[in-house]
Computed example of a mutant assay.
Amino acid sequence: MAERGASGRIEGDAHLFPVRVYWEDTDAGGIVYYANYLKFTERARSDLLRGLGVDQQAMLGDGEGAMFAVRDVTIEYLSPARLDDDLVVATRLVALKGATITLDQDVLRGGEALVRSRVRAAFIGLGGRPRRIPTDIRQAMEGLAARGEEEES
């Protein structure tokens, strides 16, 4: 199901996005700077959309222009990642509403959760007003959730 240019993969109900920790991601002690986890999860969300066939540039350029914007984030730091670690951001759809999505995103190292986050993003027009999530995007996201339900059966 991965589209051209997507780096991650979908397994069951999760999108798995690989991240390598580079020097620029760390503080002077070689530990990932806390705000960089937000960058890792942002990249994973963008890659998830790309993997589902959603063209974010086209959304911006359509007649009215629209995008997903983060509305709120909760994040829990459990253990630090370090320089040269190979991480995976696992993203799961928690809720899909008219104009918002809620995603759980865990940053993992060797299967161990280092960071847990929950992100709520709103689908908005360029003027900042909420818009309904388009049917094609909604169906792609519902398909992701359904894959996980099929595997649980």
Rank of each mutant, 00 (worst) to 15 (best):
R50E: 01
I75P: 02
L96D: 06
A113K: 15
S7P: 00
E152G: 15
V54F: 03
V73F: 06
R129L: 11
G128F: 10
T100H: 10
T102W: 04
S117E: 08
R116W: 07
D85Q: 07
A44Q: 00
A122D: 04
G30V: 10
I10N: 02
G61Q: 15
R92F: 04
A122S: 14
A113W: 02
A121G: 04
A113G: 02
D136T: 11
E76R: 15
Q139E: 15
R45P: 00
R120E: 13
V89H: 00
L114S: 04
A66T: 04
T26C: 15
E150C: 03
Q57T: 11
S79E: 14
A113R: 15
E76K: 13
A69Q: 04
G12C: 10
A81F: 08
G65I: 02
E151Y: 03
E24P: 02
A140L: 05
I124D: 07
L108N: 04
R138W: 06
D55W: 11
R129D: 12
D104Q: 15
G12P: 07
V70C: 05
M1L: 12
G51C: 03
P130S: 12
T41W: 00
G61L: 14
M1E: 09
D47H: 03
M67T: 13
R132M: 10
R109C: 13
V21M: 05
S153W: 12
V70W: 07
R132F: 07
E112S: 11
F68N: 02
L87E: 01
A99T: 15
E64W: 02
E42C: 01
V19W: 00
L52K: 01
G8Q: 01
D72T: 12
A35M: 08
D13Q: 12
E24I: 01
E76G: 10
R131W: 08
E151G: 10
R138M: 09
R109M: 09
A145F: 09
V73W: 03
G61F: 07
E150N: 10
T135D: 15
Y34E: 06
S79G: 08
E149D: 14
E152H: 13
L16P: 00
P18M: 05
F17C: 03
I137L: 13
D25W: 07
N36I: 10
Q57R: 14
R138P: 06
D27K: 11
R45Q: 04
L60V: 09
R147W: 06
R45E: 00
D72K: 12
V73C: 09
Y34Q: 12
D86F: 07
F40H: 05
A122P: 04
V54G: 03
E150L: 14
M59V: 05
V73D: 02
T102V: 15
I31K: 06
L52D: 02
F17S: 01
F40Y: 15
R92E: 14
V70P: 04
E142S: 11
L87P: 00
G65E: 07
Q56C: 04
A140G: 10
R132T: 12
V73E: 02
T74H: 13
P130Y: 10
D104F: 03
Y33A: 11
M1C: 11
